[in-house]
């Protein structure tokens, strides 16, 4: 019997998750619970966070910080990438700066932000934007450069205004790259926000993780971590749905199904 590929994929993922959970549960019988808490404790704590408003609020706070950071980096990155794409001479001035930014660890930015700024939210927004800006800029720039010369000339033959050219050609051309950039940067942003909150905030998942560390509460630490993983998975899935809808024009080979 041949299984539906999607069902097969689901069953494989479920099987590997169950094996991991079983291994964890077995470990919990042999090690102290502050090292390996039972699976049911983690599940209960995870659900409790989701149904208790003050705790859920912390998750939403972190989610909001991720969105603000990513949106800021995306806007700034696009504002940098499109002029670089149009006027390549600017590139040699801006690219070294972006490469330099990329080399600075997120934790260094946390320290710098704490020294430079007072407001918690501003600090976190700054850290999020500065750490994801280079990736957004390079990805939007790459998409812009992949614009077809043929389509550009065809569109120009109708003599569009700058805004119309941007709307009818540039946006659809860079859209797949933008969606990919969001997917990639979402994971990075989730990791950076936790570090930023851990060191410089009084709320959010990062702050809660710090509390669990002080209480030596492994079940709590895992439950808060799972919130972040769930958030990333849900947003990734939403981006995939948006991508599937916006890029529905792309042909798919039967062989690839």
């Amino acid at each position: 019997m041949t299984l539906n590929p999607r069902l097969r994929q689901f069953l494989q993922a479920t099987a590997s998750t169950l094996v991991l959970l079983a291994a964890w549960q077995i470990a919990s019988y042999f090690f102290p619970h502050y090292l390996f808490p039972p699976v049911q404790d983690i599940v209960v704590r995870t659900v409790r966070i989701l149904v208790t408003w003050p705790e859920l609020k912390q998750v939403l706070e972190t989610a909001m910080r991720i969105f603000v950071g990513l949106a800021g980096a995306f806007v700034l990155g696009s504002l940098l990438a499109i002029p670089i794409g149009r006027y390549p001479k600017i590139e040699s001035y801006i690219t070294p700066f972006l490469v330099f930014l990329q080399g600075i660890p997120a934790l260094s930015w946390v320290i710098i932000a704490i020294i430079w700024f007072h407001g918690t939210e501003f600090r976190i927004a700054f850290i999020m934007i500065i750490t994801t800006l280079p990736a957004f800029t390079f990805q939007v720039l790459d998409s812009y450069r992949s614009m077809s010369k043929d389509l550009f000339e065809m569109t120009m033959s109708f003599r569009p205004s700058g805004w119309t050219l941007f709307r009818v050609l540039i946006v659809p051309t860079i859209l797949p790259g933008i969606l990919t950039a969001w997917k990639i940067n979402l994971g990075n942003a989730a990791r950076v926000v936790v570090v930023a909150e851990l060191v410089g905030a009084t709320g959010g998942v990062g702050y809660e993780l710090l509390r669990q560390q002080q209480l030596f509460d492994m079940a709590g630490a895992l439950a808060w971590t799972i919130q972040l993983v769930l958030f990333v998975l849900v947003v990734q899935q939403i981006i995939v749905w948006i991508e599937n809808w916006l890029l529905r024009y792309r042909p798919v080979s039967e062989r690839a199904a």
Binding site: D150, L151, E153, S157, R159, V168, L169, P172
Partner: peptide, 19 residues
């Protein structure tokens, strides 16, 4: 811009926007 709408071009390849 003086040629807006005055010249129509059919290229060697169709140059249709895939989206």
């Amino acid at each position: 811009n003086a040629f807006r709408g005055k010249i129509g071009i059919v290229f060697q390849n169709d140059r249709l926007m895939p989206w």
